[in-house]
Design a binder for these strands. Structure first.
Lengths: 348, 348
DNA sequence: CTTTAGCACTCATATCTTTCGAGTGCCAAC
DNA sequence: GTTGGCACTCGAAAGATATGAGTGCTAAAG
């Protein structure tokens, strides 16, 4: 009982039909496919064999067959024909990036939303900051009498700023003093090192001034943390409601993916390209009814983030996988333009 | 047939019971209420009268009664007993504000989320900027060779910053030139005046340099627009899924409230205090099955924003109205601390 | 040895019927 | 004005029946 060519064609047809219709697929339907064209009885024999091999499941005796997780896996890994994107499709994805603000902070959030709209799945987008990234420069700019703007520039080119309102008047002397102090203490340190304890030790070095400057120290800490933590955005969670697979589980899944702690580790550690987790393959049991497509994107040479799709197991892999791949490439390219100033060789 | 005291007690009991149970309320149930204690037959007579007056509805002949929109309205306007918040409840709300980042930009987003969690409703939070607010100061700070940080400080105390990456090296001379130019052109103008056309005319004044400085001009425009547009955040849209009233309309409502264009005008123009829109009272027909509670909050003396709750018509008004009111007060107070630098008298 | 027609069997779904009971409206009595 | 009594209504739940798509198996045909 080999996994011969006809069995492969039948499995493919079952997966594709089930993805399209959501109904278990029966032998009669399959026998009418031009690439199969044998009698329903023969199809039934083959289906029994595929069932024995663990590639199909049966909701109940008198229903058609449905792909098992292994069936989907076999389909995705070797049977599926990935059609390259047409020029129109590429244009369609390119267009998604034209509406948004080119502000890098917003680009990722907008991308997550646009991808959700485009694919009809819920999306997650996150960036990660390598542990070797350091603080390159800190600046403090008086904005008006008691307000300053704090800037932290990291060695990966990310700049974050924050408005700090102080309880006292800030002249250039004070700003200069604090700027020098902060740069002496923080520059060259990796973001990972900038912990609450580290900040305490720095604060102590300010001696009698530590109280006065505390809002600024806290501000720097928050900015560094913000850069190091990276970004985490969700898009189109409500898309899940359009699938009846989620009729009573939507809330649970929507809550789950809102938790960065839960999802971050799952989608953060994947090789480049598109990785697929089908149903029970997900390490989180709540996702056993969902599939997760994850793609990494990079700025220049530097891997920097992940964008993922969450939808029902019955999702259109052959369309979504290449589209997600192209989307991630495009996103990386766009971010690279924004951050072009920096390349890998300048990093620690 | 007067709207006498007993009728009022019966209506109140119907509203409160229906809110609690979600089931139409029958005469027998009501007759057992201590504040009613007349026979079911008498209650039926009263209910028939209330029905005549348009305060009750009947899902079908053999079911109990349900409040009509007028019934809810009468209840909220004159029958409902608003219990003042206990110290514990106030503490509970106060605690919601302790977790978040005191960054004013994030405070509102976090508030919307916290309020949703606290009330079990979807929330909307937005700020509006009065049309008399002007540009007070613009700054440009070189961050590294080709990167600058733009700052716009508005007369209402709001400061926004943005990182701009330029295609050329920026020295202090260039920065000083542009700073002076920008302040000369923009300071004193209201944010409302800073339109795309206005920016064009400014750009022309830069003559041969207009191309080079264009990213900065665009950056200023975006910052001004960001300040003028104010913020718009949603919280806990998925909470709607917990009410079976929304079993098949949740997606529609979730999409609707995501559109600032649709909801903004509805919630933005209300008097201070809590305003209630019950079901069909909403100007948007899609909200006819929902109620909307809206509260304004202010910074110091200046009215500055709105926070609202969206949930099923059958929501617990007597609890939510005072809680929302206190929440809005507290939010305003917190923002006032952040923006205390400015008070009304300094504004144009 | 593979393929196919035939046939009895299974079982979810849809439809129809029946039953049940909470609740009503109305009337007559208190 | 209030109440008990009673026939009536109608949705929801439970049961009964029918439908039909799909199966597994067997035996004959290729």
């Amino acid at each position: 009982m080999f996994f011969d060519d006809r069995k492969k064609r039948i499995l493919s047809a079952i997966v594709e039909t089930y993805i399209r219709t959501g109904e278990p697929v029966g032998s009669k339907t399959l026998s009418e496919f031009p690439e199969i064209s044998v009698s329903p009885a023969t199809v039934r024999n083959e289906m029994a064999a595929l069932f024995e091999m663990g590639l199909l499941e049966q909701p109940h005796t008198s229903a058609g067959r449905v792909p098992s997780h292994l069936g989907y896996r076999a389909y995705i890994d070797s049977l599926m024909r990935v059609r390259p994107l047409t020029a129109d499709e590429k244009d369609g994805i390119d267009a998604l990036f034209n509406i948004g603000d080119p502000d890098p902070d917003k680009l990722l959030a907008d991308s997550a939303e646009a991808l959700a709209e485009y694919t009809g799945c819920a999306t997650v987008a996150m960036t990660t900051t390598p542990s070797y990234v350091t603080v390159e420069h800190i600046d403090i700019v008086p904005a008006d009498a008691t307000t300053v703007v704090l800037l932290v520039i990291a060695s990966n080119g990310v700049v974050k700023s924050k408005v700090c309102r102080l309880g006292f008047r800030v002249n250039t002397g004070i700003a200069d003093f604090f700027r020098k102090f902060a740069n002496d203490r923080f520059c060259g340190h990796t973001l990972k090192e900038i912990t609450a304890e580290f900040m305490n030790s720095v604060s102590i070095q300010l001696g009698e001034y530590s109280g006065v400057f505390n809002p600024l120290i806290v501000g720097i800490y928050e900015l560094c943390k913000e850069v190091y933590d990276g970004q985490y955005y969700l898009g189109g969670r409500e898309k899940l409601l359009t699938y009846n697979e989620y009729s009573d589980r939507a809330l649970e899944i929507m809550k789950l993916i809102s938790k960065r702690d839960e999802i971050g580790p799952v989608i953060g550690n994947n090789p480049s390209g598109v990785t697929v987790f089908i149903g029970k393959e997900n390490s989180l049991s709540q996702l056993s009814g969902s599939s997760l497509l994850v793609a990494r994107f990079s700025i220049g040479e530097n891997d920097c983030g992940t964008i993922g799709l969450i939808g029902p197991v019955r999702m259109d892999y052959s369309r979504l996988i290449p589209h997600l791949e192209y989307f991630a490439e495009k996103l990386g390219a766009l971010l690279s333009i924004t951050y072009q100033r920096k390349t890998g060789d300048e990093n620690g």
